[in-house]
């Protein structure tokens, strides 16, 4: 309940801020051309578009990759993959984005590739951890009861790892919404265009016109994904969490 109040309060603050700035009279008469509602809306949509594309690629590669390195034949790849993910997560997002310019040039594709790479990391890490951290006694019990490899994966490992994998996807999405603002620097689109216009003209109100909706977007997506995560988690796993 309290959490819901905080969440809604914060969202209202961010949206209110955006509305207030966009409706300010004096900023319209000033030197800088303010952004209109239409601008903000279309920027939000293209922002979302970019995030969704990057995330879909990251999920479709990251989840299988994280799971595959837990399989017996590919286990020796786990250390380099997990280590690589750890290193990748230490590297600042700005560096990953900026380096796309010399590598791929400026353009929407460079922006999406950067977001995909950075978004991949939490997904791979959590998919790996979700499967790898399953109590070995559980898997052994399943084997001892005569489940085939496929049955163990389908009936035991995936349902148990699913909440952890979903957390990875949520973290990745929320991070990507934020980093997408910077992706504008290498040719991305979306709310970052508004924010950076504000930054380069040192106009805090314009920065907020782009950044406040971005923050609202991140919080909202995080909340929605958390709900999905919750609804996908078996009640048996939640009871445990409640007792711990």
């Amino acid at each position: 309940m309290r959490r819901r109040v905080i969440l809604i309060g914060l969202l209202m603050l961010l949206v209110g801020l955006t509305i207030w700035i966009t409706n300010l009279e004096w900023i319209k008469e000033g030197v800088y051309k303010p952004f209109t509602w239409g601008d903000i809306m279309s920027a939000t949509i293209s922002h979302l578009e970019m995030v969704v594309i990057a995330e879909l690629i990251a999920i479709s590669i990251g989840v299988p990759l994280g799971i595959l390195v837990t399989r017996p034949g590919l286990r020796r790849l786990a250390t380099p993959v997990v280590g690589g993910v750890g290193v990748g997560q230490t590297i600042p997002s700005l560096a990953v984005i900026a380096i796309m310019a010399p590598l791929l040039g400026f353009g929407l594709n460079s922006a999406i590739v950067a977001l995909f790479i950075y978004g991949l990391l939490p997904i791979v890490r959590n998919s790996y951890a979700g499967i790898n951290n399953i109590d070995s006694a559980i898997v052994e019990a399943a084997r001892g009861m005569g489940m085939t490899r496929g049955q163990i994966a389908r009936k035991i490992e995936l349902p148990l790892a699913l909440p952890v994998i979903m957390t990875g996807i949520r973290i990745s999405t929320v991070i990507t919404v934020g980093t997408a603002e910077l992706a504008v620097l290498v040719g991305g689109k979306g709310l970052g265009l508004i924010t950076l216009t504000g930054v380069f003209s040192m106009q805090p109100l314009t920065i907020l016109q782009g950044a406040a909706p971005t923050a609202a977007l991140a919080i909202t997506l995080g909340f929605i994904l958390e709900r999905i995560e919750n609804s996908m988690t078996s009640r048996g796993l939640k009871v445990k969490a409640a007792m711990a």
């Binding site: 109590d135 559980i138 052994e140 019990a141 399943a142 001892g144 005569g146 035991i156 048996g236």
Partner: peptide, 23 residues
């Protein structure tokens, strides 16, 4: 067949290994 064999042999272990997501 090893899976058939195991399905006809009950198996209980110290760590129990109950499946936490199942009732």
């Amino acid at each position: 067949n090893e899976n058939e064999l195991r399905r006809n042999i009950g198996y209980a272990i110290q760590d129990i290994g109950l499946f936490p997501h199942m009732t």
